[in-house]
Write a protein that binds this DNA or RNA. Structure first.
Length: 692
DNA sequence: CGAGGTTTCGTTTTT
DNA sequence: CGAAACCTCG
């Protein structure tokens, strides 16, 4: 895929660390070997610091393959590595850089066999995992599933996941959350075990497995552990405040030998405790490495002093976080204060944002300089409506993501099944598309096919269209079922799989006993790109136009996947990325320069910055969220607000509706406590014109 | 057992 | 206002 263009570091002009970094940053970048804790406030050039650190290491003669760079999102990893490439000319693919989940996937793919993972294991996204858990629950305790007082599979899944991410026993979490159902802890514990078993038996991994099994691999396989401990001379971790216990264990294990671990974080920006993040990891790091150096980076280049004052003051009420106080110091010259704008309701709020954007646009502001942030996806609805009406271009990084759309998942399910014939979740998804096939029929068909496969020693994929199986397929579904089966077989063949190279539609009986040598297979294996095309041209392409009225545009989506597939060398890698990248923006062409307004949740805005930021829905019950108020824990909500405020560079609009309009009787809303706590002289109150 | 219509519910954040 | 859950019919 890439060619080695010569690792000529020297071809690039030496980096002037003196001129390009401030003293705080430089200290961290040029830090000597040994454990280091970098406390970097919002907008202080955290990314820049990490980037230059990598560049510095390279300059010191460290090989890129000896550096492990872990970030929270794929985007952050890409950004950093491409900046390193700009800086040093070192191509980014030479590094081990990515998310914990991404790197875990890679390592497990390479060495997972010793803990029972085959190379072709499939990664399930959250909804796959949910439905698998749902199946398991229904199977082992159908009464449980029927009683509506019991938590639903999704909630059960959340509890299990939380337990795993925090390394606590499942029953303990359940006791905390459902103290009124006495037998529940034991029951859910059983579900968790059964779910675990089902995944292993089917070579399936959910997101948490990628971390948990990574730890297991490092623990149980000394050879692998030593290999990676030696290999990664330098480990850099971004956003450490949002790592969970499992991730901390990984870092601690990998760093044990060389001890060159640099973690970067900001306690005040910890916004993922709900999925097990523990900013205490920052403190624990200090305990693990008593000799760690601390580097503080507090000068903020991003925001105006007005915005920073506001941010600092709203955190005054946050309980102190042990040990590492940070205060942002402004660097920019003073300009204007943040605006606080009350609106009648969410609709007026949307219209105000609209009109303000139009105004800014007339002042010559580019639309890509503007972002609207909110706590929850649904809060963007009104605005979406208004924006589409006005014709202002916007991109929304929420809602249904590209890889989560039904047709994409359907297509991918076929690839998954061909790649991992035990992937019952993939088969069920496909089979249930067919008329008169539901969960039960699908399950029966698949298990029958597996039995036949075992008996006749043929590929399970091939067995799908065995006569005995076809007999059990409902009449209405038969034609489609057969076509589907053949397509999956074709895919398996194209991938060099065991279906063999000569699967004819008729008279299969003799052909699949043919043994295909590995080399022959490899030689015949088509590229992921070709396979993707094959899948689109097969059954699903036809099926699609019979069920979707907008099949044409869906077809375009799938066609764009062919190009996407071209970026990967193996099918396993492609399939993994399809799942792991599912948070990426849904727009087909990821084009950062396009002239559009950005609409995003606060969570997704982490690490980004915009000249002009609107934060909407700053009312009690929305931010902080009602549930947070009820549970009495609003600290994380406050940090969330802090994160949103510190995204802004020049102008910040803080908005709240006075009436909640959506659904049911209108309710009066109070301005968010986070707004009320801030002294009035730190912001300017704007009035919205009435009479809209 | 599955489909399709009807009702009811509830609405966080993501790798 | 939309999607899951429920119910009844084929």
């Amino acid at each position: 895929m890439h060619s080695d263009s010569g690792s000529a570091l020297d071809a690039f002009s030496p980096i002037d660390f003196e001129a390009e970094l401030n003293p705080e940053q430089r200290a961290a970048v040029l830090a000597p070997d040994g454990p280091a804790l970098v406390l970097a406030g919002a907008g202080s050039g955290k990314t820049r610091t990490l980037t230059y650190r990598v560049a510095y290491l390279l300059q010191q003669g460290v090989w890129p393959s000896q550096i492990l760079l872990l970030t929270f999102t794929n985007k952050a990893a890409r950004e950093m590595l491409s900046r390193v490439e700009e800086l040093t000319g070192m191509p980014s693919w030479k590094f081990w850089g990515g998310t914990f989940h991404g790197i875990g996937q890679r390592i497990l793919r390479m060495h997972g066999e010793s803990i029972g993972l085959e190379k072709n294991f499939t990664i399930m996204d959250q909804s796959d995992a949910e439905s698998l858990l749902g199946d398991v629950i229904r199977e082992i305790d159908s009464a449980f599933a029927k009683n509506k007082d019991n938590p639903k599979p999704k909630v059960v899944g959340d509890m299990i996941s939380y337990a795993r991410n925090t390394c606590r026993p499942v029953h303990e979490i359940v006791e905390e959350r459902y103290p009124w159902i006495e037998e529940l802890p034991v029951v859910v514990d059983g579900f968790a075990k059964a779910y675990e078993g089902r995944k292993r038996e089917r070579q399936l991994c959910d997101y948490d497995d990628l971390l948990e099994l990574w730890v297991k691999l490092l623990k149980e396989n000394e050879e692998v552990r030593t290999h990676f401990q030696d290999r990664f001379k330098y480990i850099l971790v971004d956003e450490y405040q949002d790592t969970n216990r499992v991730q901390a264990t990984i870092i601690n294990t990998l760093g044990e030998k060389n001890r060159n671990v640099m973690i970067v974080g900001d306690n005040w920006q910890c916004i993922y405790t709900w999925r097990g993040a523990e900013f205490e990891n920052m403190t624990e790091f200090a305990e693990q490495y008593p000799d760690r150096q601390i580097y503080k980076i507090e000068t903020n280049y991003r925001s105006t002093p007005g915005i920073l004052d506001f941010a600092n003051h709203m955190m005054v009420m946050h309980p102190p976080i042990d040990g590492y106080p940070l205060e942002l110091k402004a660097h920019k010259p003073n300009t204007v204060l943040p605006y606080v704008v009350p609106a009648m309701d969410t609709r007026q709020q949307a219209r105000y944002v609209m009109s303000r954007i139009e105004g800014l646009s007339q002042e010559g502001r580019s639309l890509k300089d503007i972002a609207v942030l909110y706590r929850a996806h649904y809060q963007a609805m009104d605005l979406q409506l208004e924006l589409s009406r006005s014709g202002l271009p916007f991109t929304i990084t929420s809602g249904v993501r590209f890889f989560e759309q039904a047709h994409v998942r359907d297509l991918v399910a076929q690839l998954r099944l061909a790649s991992n014939p035990r992937d019952i979740a993939a088969f069920n998804r496909l089979a249930m598309l067919l008329p008169r096939v539901g969960a039960r029929t699908a399950d029966r068909l698949f298990k029958l096919a597996e039995k036949i496969a075992a008996r006749d020693r043929i590929s399970p994929v091939l067995a799908l269209t065995h006569d005995e199986v076809l007999k059990k397929v409902p009449k209405d579904a038969l034609d489609d079922y057969r076509d589907m089966g053949f397509t999956v077989q074709d895919i398996e063949t194209a991938m060099g799989g065991p279906a063999g190279n000569a699967v004819e539609k008729e008279d299969q009986s003799d052909l699949f006993t043919e043994v295909v040598s590995d080399e022959k297979r490899a030689a015949e294996a088509k590229s992921p790109q070709e396979v993707m095309q094959l899948a689109i041209d097969g059954w699903y392409g036809d099926y699609m136009r019979t069920v979707f009225d907008n099949w044409q545009s869906r077809k375009d989506d799938l066609d764009s996947l062919v190009g996407f597939a071209g970026r990967y060398d193996t099918m396993e890698e492609l399939l993994a990325q399809l799942v792991l990248l599912n948070s990426e923006t849904s727009d087909r062409s990821i084009d950062p320069e396009q002239e559009t307004i950005k609409l995003t949740t606060i969570h997704q805005a982490k690490g980004l910055e915009y000249p002009i930021v609107f934060v909407i829905g700053l009312a009690e019950g929305l931010l902080p969220l009602k549930r947070a108020i009820e549970s009495g824990d609003t600290d994380e909500e406050r940090r969330l607000f802090y994160v949103s405020v510190t995204r802004a560079q020049d102008e910040l609009y803080l908005m709240f509706p006075k009436v909640s309009a959506s659904g049911g009787p209108p309710q009066l809303l109070e301005p968010s406590r986070f707004l009320r706590e801030v002294p009035e002289h730190l912001y300017e109150m704007l009035r919205v014109r009435t009479g809209w």
